[in-house]
Amino acid sequence: MSPQSEKYQNRIELLQGTLDLLILQTLMWGAQHGYGISQVIRAQSGDVLQVDTGSLYPALHRLERQKWIKSEWRLTDNNQRAKFYQLTSAGKKRLGEERSRWNQMSDAIGAILANRPEEV
């Protein structure tokens, strides 16, 4: 087994809706293109979360349609043309909402998981 496919095995399917949160969070640090976003998510999750392009691009285009992010074509540091996405003010507000929803949810799930019978 190559390391590549091993990593694939460890990959966690993103929960529905969490991708939006991750994308918005990633863009908090400034404008970024699609490839960059996927790299940041992967690196920051310690290679656990790998974003599928088949999910990433539809999500980016949908978020743009919802006016939470906007895009423009710019040159990268390597002098390459790429489409950069950045948060709009509506997007920032949305990020706050998504974040608190996520916290609520993870607290709730954590509380359920913490409640285990003695014998286990």
């Binding site: 293109h33 699609g34 490839y35 960059g36 790299q39 392009t53 691009y57 990268t76 390597n78 390459q80 043309r81 790429a82 489409k83």
Partner: peptide, 17 residues
């Protein structure tokens, strides 16, 4: 064609890395 271009730039950046 804009989407084509976006995907091409993704692949090129990945290839460069």
């Amino acid at each position: 064609s804009e989407l084509d271009e976006e995907i091409r730039s993704h692949i090129e950046m990945a290839a460069r890395d």
